[in-house]
Design a protein around this nucleic acid. Sequence first.
RNA 1: GCCCCCAUCGUCUAGCGGCCCAGGACGGAGCCCUCUCAAGGCUCAAACAGGGGUUCGAGUCCCCUUGGGGGCACCA
Length: 493
Amino acid sequence: MDLKPVRVRFAPSPTGRMHLGSARTALYCYLLARRTGGQFILRIEDTDRKRFVEGAEQELINGLRWLGIHYDEGPDVGGPYAPYRQTERQQIYQKWSNELVARGHAYPCFCTPDRLEKVRQEQQKQKQTPRYDGLCRQLDPAEARRRVDAGEKHVIRFKMPTEGQTRAVDHMRGEITWENAQLDDAIIIKSDGLPTYHLAAMTDDFEMKVTHVIRGSEWLSTFPLHVNIIRALGWPEPVWMHLSVFLKPSGKGKMSKREQAAALGDGHSIFVTDLKQLGYIPAGVLNWIVLMGWGVAEDDVMTLDQMVQRFDIDHLTASPAAINFAKLDHFNGTHIRLLDTPTLAPLLKPFFAAEGYTVDDETLLKVTPLIRERLVTLDDCIPFAGWFFKESVSPNPADLVAKGLTPANSAAIANRAHDILSGLPAITHAEAEPPLRALVEELGLNPNQVFGILRVAVTGQVVSPPLFESMEIVGREKVLARIRAAIRLLETM
RNA sequence: GCCCCCAUCGUCUAGCGGCCCAGGACGGAGCCCUCUCAAGGCUCAAACAGGGGUUCGAGUCCCCUUGGGGGCACCA
């Protein structure tokens, strides 16, 4: 691919939550900018006041920050082409809209929503493609001008060519051709004076000197409109790329609200801020989404920096990708394992806190290496290590009985172990294991049987981090006390 | 209904005419390691949607069919 520095923008509208699709678009934009040493811009497309959602912009920004996708220019950081919120750029769109009308490429339309709706219904009844019937396109420009000046309510429509074809090139898909006769005269300025996406995005991309437009494939159908606007104004054309959508895990269509809720109940989500709360880390999420639409032959575990090194827009995939949460889990676990203890431990803390545990850093730092390779998500630290921060544990009596043995036998074994351990000045991994192994040998049992009793006695659970390391962290007095409690429990069975 | 896009293992993908009786990853199965659970190592099963062309040669190029997806708003 060409490595000349580019200017790319991520241009979401603050109308909802930030989902995986947006995150991937932002990621690809970011990767391309960094790869070429260019700039990555965040632009807020907030011209739809009806669907505007308070706080959505902040969630977007938080999401990008959390993922580590940093932008060079944006509403909160400024930049040479500020402002970066479209509602603050209204005069600019007005100017270019006027220019379009002056050049005969656009016209005022006085049709009411009511009339438009009737036309649409009529067309549908006749099995025709619903589109504007061009009534106001015939209007004499001077007459139209007079009505506008008189304050008559109107919109501005772009005058699409009616003959021939429109051709445009998508970098991933090649040349695409449309019959102009199929195209519609889209509204570019609404009656509230604000532009629609079509005018606003094209204008800003021009004004902000955007060289590469990476956006969702939902824009493919309005692609010919956009290139016609640009060409009518004589603006340079960017490199276009329309990324495909993400499909639900079954591969059939997009995720519905209901399915989103089901995924959440399962510990998964398509929303970035949810993922953070569910215990996913940015590196895992990033590695997961970057591979949905971009393939690497081998070594698919990558950090953000490694992605930058390898990213190549010539090798993006155009086909829709089904979401696979199992793969997210895999990448998340893999990247957690890549974290060193001083980095991982603080990430775990809020999850312990959320469960009501008070954790001291000293213990946490010792516990972290023991559970690191067992974590798929950060919140897995609770079942594995929550018990470390409890004053006492309450084992299920039945779990204390070793496989193939009676409660009495188990109690006797626990007693022997207790004697051995109490004879040690301190219970460390190095000092405790040999004599207990010897005990296993002497009794002619499996390590599993003996260590299993102790595991349940000390940790209160059947699954835990390694026994000896765990006992060392818990400390001699507590270990011995818990074994004695377990013996008493076994004796009452 | 109309327009446009897409099509390799269940899933994400490598492949850009011969290196492919198709490679990697997830998931699945088995084995090894092992104090539980993991992690790790090894092995196995698993795909070029179908049909026509072009070519000495096609997963790779073209066409059709089928299937899937997106769009058809004074939303983005």
